[in-house]
Simulated scan of single mutants.
Amino acid sequence: MTAASKTPPVVVVMGVSGSGKSTVGGLLAERLGVPYAEADDFHPAANIAKMSAGHPLDDADRAPWLDAIAEWIAAHEGHGGVVSCSALRRRYRDRLREAAPDLFFLHLDGPQELIAARLAARMQHFMPSGLLGSQLDALERLEPDESGAVVSIEGGPQQIAERALALLPD
């Protein structure tokens, strides 16, 4: 996207833990020349403690987190931005879309074995690999009426980011 082109969209890089949201989201924001926000930074301490103890979050835990992400999204509408967020359920994505109706979702998706291997290799993150199953169970894939695209997580971060860029709306 050139400086003369229209404003970059606000993009949510979504998927289960270990799918590469933070890495790909940061690369995407860099390529688009827009701010990046890490969804984990919006979690209250109680959520991090709960997940660190191996317990999945429930909707009551997620509500203030989603609200904080939605505020960030609303502040960047019209300017562009990229935020990572699991956004596993349609109702969570709908909540985020309330902040910016033109929000675009990039779902990083791949084989469970690959995601599990990435989680096992990840250091210093509060999300234990044992919660992958609960995230996969909760995942509601993008529906045809949702603005977004699925991106394969096969290959390296640069390759994934290139595929993601190619899928963004013009």
Rank of each mutant, 00 (worst) to 15 (best):
D170A: 15
A100T: 11
S134D: 00
S129C: 03
P169H: 13
G78T: 09
G54F: 01
Q135L: 10
R122S: 10
E77V: 11
V82C: 05
S86T: 05
W65A: 04
A166Q: 13
R163E: 02
A117S: 10
R95L: 14
E140T: 08
P111L: 14
V34L: 02
I69M: 14
R95P: 03
E77D: 13
L28Q: 03
L32D: 11
D94I: 11
A46I: 09
G20M: 07
Q159G: 14
V82A: 07
S86I: 06
N47C: 11
A138F: 01
D61L: 08
E113Q: 13
H107D: 03
L168A: 10
P64E: 03
M51K: 01
G148S: 07
L66I: 12
A164C: 13
D61Y: 07
G78D: 08
D61P: 03
A70I: 07
R62L: 01
A121I: 00
R90D: 05
V13D: 09
L32C: 05
I115N: 03
N47L: 09
A49W: 03
L167H: 01
A100C: 15
A70Y: 04
A99C: 07
R93S: 07
A53V: 00
G81S: 07
G81Q: 06
H107V: 02
Q135N: 02
P169Q: 13
A63M: 06
R90I: 03
G81H: 06
R91S: 15
E71C: 01
W72S: 07
G155I: 14
A99D: 09
R90V: 12
I153L: 06
E162Y: 09
A100P: 08
V10A: 09
L57K: 01
M123D: 12
H107W: 14
P35H: 00
D102M: 07
Q158P: 00
G156C: 10
R93H: 08
I73Q: 05
R89I: 00
M123A: 11
D58Y: 06
P35C: 13
G18N: 02
I153T: 15
A149G: 10
M127A: 08
L57T: 05
R90L: 12
R95K: 15
E71M: 02
A39Y: 05
A161H: 02
A3I: 13
R122A: 08
E38Q: 03
I48E: 00
H55W: 04
D102Y: 01
P35L: 12
R93I: 00
A60C: 00
A45V: 13
Q112V: 13
H55I: 15
E38D: 15
S134N: 03
V11N: 02
A120I: 09
D59K: 11
E77Q: 14
A74T: 10
V11F: 09
A116R: 15
E30S: 12
F126G: 05
F42T: 02
L66C: 09
H43D: 06
G15R: 04
G155Y: 11
E77G: 14
S86L: 12
L88S: 06
S5Y: 04
G133F: 03
A120S: 11
A4W: 12
S52Y: 00
Y36L: 15
A3W: 11
Q159E: 15
P144Y: 10
G26F: 11
A161T: 14
H79N: 10
L27I: 09
L96I: 05
H79C: 05
L108T: 02
